[in-house]
Simulated scan of single mutants.
Amino acid sequence: MITMYGIKNCDTIKKARQWLEAEGIDYQFHDYRKDGLSAELLDTFIADLGWEALLNKRGTTWRKVADEIRDTINADSARELMLDNPSIIKRPLLDTQTQKVLGFKADDYAALNLK
């Protein structure tokens, strides 16, 4: 089963979900705010994608992080930050069971041959 991770009210999540539904692709949606984020799940994301790729430094959540944390961010502090604030994780994160894909571009999703 394909799983999409993110936050329900995110515009990019909405676009990705609309694309999957229009293509008739079954998936589960895991909302970090509603369903939570376990340390074990985050650790699998970090192992597969790297903490640098997961950490969204373009969003409003990152801009709210204290300068002393942003200036000294490392693997350990990034992990804790993502556990405390899952909205700082780049989204969507699509898990196809064979690979994990960050972000949404229709052409990239089409190339995954999800059907």
Rank of each mutant, 00 (worst) to 15 (best):
T60F: 01
A39W: 02
A39S: 14
L54D: 08
M82N: 09
H30C: 03
W51G: 03
F29D: 07
S87Y: 02
P86E: 06
Q97P: 04
W51E: 13
L42K: 11
Y27G: 01
T96V: 12
D31Q: 00
D84A: 15
L93C: 11
Y32W: 11
N74F: 02
F29V: 02
R17P: 03
Q18T: 15
Q18C: 03
L49P: 10
T72K: 15
K64R: 14
I88D: 02
L83Q: 09
T72V: 10
K34L: 13
A75T: 13
L102M: 12
G103D: 07
A53S: 14
I89F: 12
A22S: 14
D26Y: 05
N56E: 04
T72G: 05
L41A: 15
T72W: 11
Q99C: 13
A16Y: 11
R79A: 06
N74S: 09
E68L: 10
F45E: 08
A106R: 06
R63F: 03
E52P: 01
R58M: 08
K100L: 08
E21N: 12
G59K: 06
D35Y: 02
W19N: 05
A22R: 13
R58N: 15
Q28L: 09
K34P: 10
I73F: 05
A75F: 03
L83F: 09
